[in-house]
Computed example of a mutant assay.
Amino acid sequence: MNVKLYVREDCPLCEEALLNLRLVSEDLPVEAEIIDIESDDRLHEKYMLMIPVLEKDGEVLLYGNIGYADLMDALS
């Protein structure tokens, strides 16, 4: 399964979400595209108050404080 994780630099919640996503990918077949919202003005405006944001097939699954259990529930 392919997902997108929208992040930005110097974001502790983003780092935690990325770590948890890596842990989940050990148990589930997940491939994540990591996208820095600061590389695109449109993405920055859309997600700057929500990051990190996990998206699958254009649908936002999770945002903000994304924990391991949240990821397992959303991706199982």
Rank of each mutant, 00 (worst) to 15 (best):
V60W: 08
L28A: 06
R22V: 00
L43Q: 05
C14V: 02
Y6H: 09
D10C: 10
K4R: 13
K46A: 12
D36Y: 10
D27M: 13
D40S: 11
A32D: 06
N20P: 05
N20W: 01
D73N: 13
D57Q: 11
S25T: 07
R42F: 15
I37D: 03
I37Q: 05
S25M: 06
N20L: 03
K4L: 07
D40H: 01
I51N: 01
L62C: 06
G64V: 00
K56W: 02
R42Q: 15
A17M: 00
Y68K: 10
L19G: 05
E55C: 05
A32P: 11
S76D: 10
M72H: 11
P52S: 00
A17F: 02
M48S: 14
E16T: 11
E38L: 15
E33R: 10
C11W: 04
N2I: 09
M50N: 14
N20A: 02
L75P: 02
L43G: 03
S76Q: 12
I35F: 02
L43I: 06
L62I: 00
E55L: 06
C11L: 05
L54M: 00
L75Q: 06
P12D: 03
N2E: 15
K4F: 00
G67I: 06
R22K: 14
R8D: 09
H44A: 12
E9K: 14
V3T: 14
R8I: 03
G64W: 00
I66F: 00
L54Q: 01
D41R: 14
P29T: 05
L23M: 12
E59F: 03
K4V: 07
R22M: 11
E45S: 15
